[in-house]
């Protein structure tokens, strides 16, 4: 029962961060700021959602197969934790080298 409540809390907070990432992707005025929203929000949202699912998977009982499936889900989370910042960095670097100009503070105040 405790595990179920914990997993529901984790999944709902994950969905909240996914939501902020998407709203940031839509609202921010500039390419680099959009990267700010997606690069962080997606990583943390996926981490929280996946760990919530892994916790829920254990709630039926600690058998060997369910523990293995939970470890696999945490491996996916770890993979995303490593790979997502790298992908963000690659796209940002491509944008910088392609000559996309960043908006500065002075540009915004006009």
């Amino acid at each position: 029962m405790i595990l179920t409540i914990l997993s529901v809390l984790l999944i709902i907070s994950g969905i909240f961060f996914f939501f902020t990432a998407t709203v940031g992707l839509l609202r921010f005025p500039d390419f680099y700021c959009r990267m700010q929203a997606t690069g962080k929000g997606d990583t943390l949202g996926a981490l929280l959602c996946l760990s919530g699912i892994a916790v829920y998977n254990l709630s039926d009982g600690f058998t060997l197969s369910s523990v293995l499936v939970s470890i696999k889900i945490m491996l996916i989370a770890f993979f995303i934790f490593i790979a997502n910042p790298t992908a963000t960095h690659a796209i940002t670097r491509a944008g910088l080298n392609a000559g996309v100009k960043p908006l500065m503070k002075e540009d915004l105040q006009k």
Partner: peptide, 13 residues
């Protein structure tokens, strides 16, 4: 060529 992408690919391949 970029050190970040190279190192992470090295670990993930």
């Amino acid at each position: 060529e970029n050190i970040i992408i190279q190192t992470i690919s090295r670990l993930l391949i």
